[in-house]
Design a protein around this nucleic acid. Structure first.
Lengths: 283, 283
DNA sequence: AAGTGGTCTAGACCACCCT
DNA sequence: GGGTGGTCTAGACCACTTG
């Protein structure tokens, strides 16, 4: 029933009178009792290590849910109950429960309590690395080639991609190579009105992706992923047979409600694989 | 310099003596002064609405970073400073800053302070819906067909996928259709040792995906995404030409360190597009 | 009407880290 | 050393929801 309270800080002794340390002017009526209980109680959460208390609560509850002990729909103990179990304040429990709610593991309803939520959509975190670091992490030498650079008035396609009315776009086509092999074909348009300094950059040796990240401090991005058959031009550039299946990632980057750039990355065939991982705990 | 403190709750009057309300036994020496300042101060954050205070702080800081006012590497004001600005306790500021740190917008270092982080990897949240709901959300009628169901001893491939030593797997091949058109080809193996009740399910009319989600309450999943050319068998099943580029999503689902199932979903050509969205604020 | 989660406070102690 | 973030508390008020 009662659980040994793990110390929040690594160096805090297991049976130190932490209440006294924390609140020198507090009443100590419970101090001895606590120490006695700690001495006698089995540390049920022995392997929890030196995590913060609210993180331990998160882990414990999460473990219960993952193991199926608490099936979907099950009511998680109230904050007050957990606070009593863990011998901590409601604030600490609340922090843990809020984290679990944000992660989507539980759903919280006032008056009713918190409930284990049903898994609905498989939500996965997809990490799309910078191409350069991705290649270098493979132990290959990164090489970048600019194929085409042109400034033009936005055509219908550009306007649709960048959701703009009129204006100029900088069109860039480039090839990323790993060692001496083509790795990824990049086709990009940049909204010149939003990034005027792009006109002064030749992009002959600087890949536009990393450059833009430095110019536009933070951004929102929308991605689409699809499979296409390589046309003759793509096949030539990527040194693959025409018709080979390619993975195409399109990304539209926005900042402050204005669309900055649109990029289409074409990876040759099944050579490239995206990896995504989903764990309920993260976030 | 000084900012008007937005009330945490919508109904709290702008100039109410909330300190008094919150702490009836507190000293009120500042009460009048606060009200006077509130009356005279411009509400710089007028449009913040009825959000919680820590969420307002999150929004404000995020806006500054997104707009580029605080470029990467810039030091965010210390917790104490922000607490003074917003006329709130450090706890509240801490809550906001912790949230921003979890979202990856800032990096916190003791003694030094918090700094706007450089965007590194494009981390996107990929939502992989249940196939049924995905089809139905398209306004199409969902239809499921079981093509093959067999129980077998795990071969080398199975063992690699499920990271198991020996044992039996249930092998299922099925087709998901939208209206009268093939939508997705599913090939799945289930670790019988982990889900013995799968033997009693025919899967003739029940799609294994949703069924498993109910049996195994929560799970960790690893995904890989790649593009392949359809072989003759796949092409026939999906009613597409041989060699058509297909999007293949493979998912390995685990629970409690044991691998439950491995599924390979093949979507015809560029008909299917995955959409992922990345915003720094979420989480 | 009662109970739950949501939020906030003022203060405290600690580990860590930079100077 | 001193300052920063990390954590925790005991108590408070409020909105919301359900019985």
């Amino acid at each position: 029933m009662w659980r040994a309270r793990q110390s929040a800080n690594a160096s805090r002794p297991a049976c130190s009178n932490w209440q006294q340390v924390l609140r020198p002017d507090a009443r100590f009526r419970d101090q001895e009792g606590i120490c006695t209980m700690m001495d006698s109680a089995e540390t049920a959460l022995a392997a929890t290590g030196d995590l913060s208390l609210h993180q331990q609560i998160v882990n414990d509850v999460e473990a219960k849910i993952l193991a199926g002990d608490w099936p979907p729909g099950h009511r998680v103990p109230f904050e007050m109950e957990l606070a009593e179990q863990y011998k901590c304040s409601r604030m600490t429990v609340n922090k843990a429960m809020s984290q679990l709610a944000r992660a989507g593991l539980i759903i919280r309803r006032k008056k009713s309590g918190s409930f284990v939520s049903l898994p609905q959509v498989q939500s996965a975190v997809l990490k799309i690395n910078e191409i350069r670091s991705e290649i270098e992490s493979l132990g290959k030498i990164y090489h970048y080639d600019l194929l085409e650079r042109s400034l033009r008035r936005a055509n219908a396609n550009d306007r649709a991609h960048l959701d703009m009315k009129d204006g100029k776009v900088l069109h860039l086509r480039s090839l990323h190579q790993a060692g001496d092999r083509p790795f990824c074909l990049e086709e990009r348009i940049i909204n010149v009105a939003e990034v005027p300094q792009s006109l002064e950059e030749s992009f002959a040796t600087t890949a536009p992706g990393g450059w833009l990240l430095q110019q536009v401090p933070w951004s929102t991005a929308e991605h689409t992923i699809q499979a296409i058959n390589a046309d003759s031009e793509t096949a030539k550039r990527l040194a693959i047979a025409e018709g080979t299946a390619c993975l195409v990632i399109e990304r539209r980057t926005s900042s402050n409600a204005a669309h900055i750039t649109h990029v289409r990355l074409t990876y040759p065939g099944n050579a490239h694989i995206l990896v995504a991982r989903f764990t309920p705990s993260q976030s």
